[in-house]
Computed example of a mutant assay.
Amino acid sequence: MIRCMLLKSDKSCTYGDESLIEMWKQNPSDALWVDFDSHDQTEERVLLKSLGCHSLAISDAQRDRHPPKIELFDDYIFMLYRGIYHPGDDLVFDHLQIAMFVGTNIVITTHAKKSISIDKLFADEGEKYLVKSPITLALRVFHYSCGIYLQKLFEFEEKLESIEDKFQMGGDDKMMQEITLYRSRLTKLKRTFNYHSNIGSELKILVTDETPIINQADLHTVTDVHERIERLLSLSQMHYDICSDLVNGYLSVASHQLNATMRVLTVITAIFIPLGFLAGLYGMNFEYIPELKVANGYYYLLSFMGFISISLVMLFKKKRWL
């Protein structure tokens, strides 16, 4: 599907299909937003080339997976970022690769499935940003996607606090499996936000270079987007660190409990070793053992074994091993 938004010089806005592209070509001073949604890639490539998009950028846009990036061409700024098709709970995101070709009077977006941010802005709100400039509209689409990520991270923060409280009452293996799963998801998000942070930094450089497509007038919007990306990166890193601390804390507690158990077993073993030695000594089948003729030898041996046991217990308690 191809949908277009044509903003004329008199500020009137028209919505339609690809026929608006021909109208724009007749008067390129107007502003145009072209959105390719789940469109046939062959037809999409032909249309993008007719609009002056570089073939390498088109190939990157049509790849199933490509790291987020930004690249400056003669007539366009090409941005590729990881948007959202469906945001789930517990940091589960159905990601969507979104490509943008941003010119002086045109912005082109292409994506394989429905985009929440683009659907949100392809209305009156989008007109407001397109009036300012195509780069402002593109950055606001990016900004809205980051806002969805941010909202889900805030929701996860509340859940993480609840997990921390439960952990203080006593963690278990099931809780550790859950935390480890969250840590893995946060690792993937951090990787995505790192790429996006690079896009924000490159945009600030382009503003400084004063290219025709983006200049100092767009600095505030670029800074706003970059700050939101950095906030996402810092939040995901903070949540990752908390999950790591919880896992390490659980492992430390489990290790301490294991050490305490092994200490008790070692003490028990140390007590019974001399007792077992004496029992084994007098259990040998020799006919001539001197002590066998002692009338109360049985009681003497039991008393001696009890004395050894009590002495060892007192020694271990004195050394705080019990």
Rank of each mutant, 00 (worst) to 15 (best):
G249H: 04
G249T: 10
G249C: 06
Y250A: 06
Y250C: 09
L251M: 12
L251Y: 03
L251N: 15
S252N: 12
S252L: 03
V253H: 04
A254F: 02
A254Y: 05
A254E: 14
S255T: 14
H256F: 04
H256G: 08
H256M: 07
Q257Y: 04
Q257G: 11
Q257T: 11
L258A: 11
A260T: 09
T261K: 11
T261M: 14
M262R: 08
M262Q: 08
M262C: 07
M262F: 05
M262V: 05
R263A: 14
R263I: 03
R263G: 08
R263M: 08
R263E: 15
V264I: 15
V264N: 09
V264G: 00
V264A: 05
L265P: 06
L265Y: 02
L265A: 05
T266H: 01
T266I: 00
I268G: 04
I268F: 09
T269Y: 03
T269E: 03
T269Q: 07
A270S: 10
I271A: 11
I271D: 10
F272S: 09
F272N: 01
F272H: 05
F272R: 07
F272A: 04
I273E: 07
P274N: 00
P274F: 01
P274Q: 02
P274K: 02
P274Y: 02
L275I: 05
L275W: 04
L275K: 04
G276T: 15
G276E: 09
F277R: 10
F277V: 11
L278M: 15
A279S: 15
A279K: 04
A279R: 03
G280K: 01
G280W: 04
L281G: 14
Y282M: 10
Y282A: 05
G283P: 15
M284D: 03
M284Q: 11
N285P: 06
N285M: 00
N285D: 10
N285H: 04
F286W: 06
E287W: 00
E287Y: 05
E287T: 13
I289R: 01
I289Y: 01
P290N: 09
E291D: 12
L292P: 11
L292R: 00
L292F: 04
V294Y: 15
A295D: 14
N296D: 15
N296I: 00
G297I: 02
G297R: 02
G297Y: 01
G297P: 07
Y298M: 00
Y298I: 02
Y298C: 00
Y299P: 12
Y299W: 15
Y300H: 09
Y300N: 06
Y300D: 06
L302G: 11
L302C: 14
L302N: 13
L302M: 14
S303D: 11
F304R: 08
F304P: 06
F304C: 14
M305D: 07
G306Q: 03
G306D: 06
G306R: 02
F307V: 15
F307P: 10
F307L: 14
I308P: 13
S309K: 02
S309A: 15
S309P: 13
S309C: 14
S309Y: 00
S309W: 03
I310G: 13
I310A: 15
S311C: 14
S311T: 02
V313P: 09
V313C: 13
V313L: 13
M314S: 12
M314N: 12
M314V: 15
M314Q: 13
L315K: 10
L315N: 13
F316G: 08
F316T: 12
K317F: 06
K317W: 04
K317P: 13
K317Y: 06
K318I: 03
K318Q: 09
K318P: 08
K319V: 00
